[in-house]
Design a protein around this nucleic acid. Structure first.
Length: 280
DNA sequence: TCCTATGTTGTATG
DNA sequence: ACATACAACATAGG
């Protein structure tokens, strides 16, 4: 499920754990969920550590802890939700579920912090020491930051001149946090056909693409900021967004009221409004 | 049975 | 070396 704003929403779900000590850790190292980290190291460092803070960037989350050793060693716990990952806070004492991968018990708060993901495309990362690990420090500047410039987008599109716009918007090294629905939303608002080749965009079109990328990210973040993280799901955007119509059969473009189209572009199911987004 | 799914990565090909 | 395309990963639901 999770793209930029939804990842931020999931991060906040573990907020009740801030300031509390993780007494015990239970991990179920199935499939590839722990393949990006040393699960043994994680299991030896986390017990006794206190959760200090958390942050999200792109589709990555980091939870910062202070270890229980005399040196108060900083710990970095990373979570990527993949397609179906979830973070929850569970009352202490409940039995583990089938899709649970990592459970941090905080008896002082009578709760456990749980990472579950039935499809197992999610990833846990772990790093010990004062310096930020590459998987966190190496994330591209947020699309809502001053580092996301029209010039950077222009250069990026130029180097990928033959690729369809849709495929390039999904590239995390320039559009961190953008996923399938955000890419479609951005292109729809910018009135750009998803199959357009990146190299053929005018300066004005690139500017529109940049502006709508920022807008969609900002609005999505604002929207989920109003949501209750104890709820089943984050608040969906209003009906004026393509988001609300992209999956429904016979869906209509909220702007032109003409039928939407769906096809695989850039390897992903893509929805667009032919009346608004032209190829030529 | 076959198809789909809001993600990333490894591999093949150009 | 770089850009591009696509199978693979693993599971559930229509």
């Amino acid at each position: 499920m999770p793209e930029l704003a939804e990842v931020e929403y999931m991060r906040r779900r573990w907020n009740p754990g801030l300031g509390h000590v993780v007494a015990t850790v239970r991990l179920h190292a199935r499939a590839g969920v722990f393949k990006a980290c040393d699960a043994t190291e994680l299991a030896s460092w986390l017990p006794g550590a206190r959760l200090e803070s958390s942050a999200a960037a792109a589709k990555q989350m980091v939870f910062r802890l202070i270890a229980a050793d005399a040196a108060r060693t900083p710990l970095w716990l990373g979570v990527h939700l993949g397609m179906t990952g979830e973070l929850t806070v569970r009352p202490a004492g409940l039995t583990d579920q089938k899709a649970d991968h990592l459970i941090l018990d905080q008896p002082g708060a009578r709760q456990s912090l749980v990472f579950s993901d039935f499809r197992m495309f999610g990833r846990v990362q772990f790093h010990v020491g004062p310096d930020a690990p590459e998987w966190w420090a190496g994330i591209a500047p947020a699309v809502t930051s001053s580092g996301f410039t029209v010039e950077a987008v222009t250069e990026f599109l130029r180097r990928r001149a033959r690729a369809p716009l849709k495929a390039v918007l999904l590239m995390q090294e320039r559009f961190p946090g953008v996923g399938n629905w955000m890419a479609d939303e951005i292109l729809w608002r910018a009135a750009l056909h998803p199959a357009r080749r990146c190299g053929e965009l005018s300066a004005v079109e690139i500017k529109k693409l940049h502006r709508e990328t920022v807008w969609v990210a900002e609005q999505a973040l604002r929207l989920i900021g109003e949501g209750d993280t104890a709820a089943e799901r984050w608040p969906d955007p209003p009906a004026s967004w393509l988001f609300q119509h992209r999956w429904e059969e016979g869906g209509k473009c909220p702007r032109t009221k003409k039928p939407l189209e769906r096809a695989t572009i850039g390897g992903r199911t893509t929805c667009w409004s032919p009346a608004r987004q032209k190829l030529a």
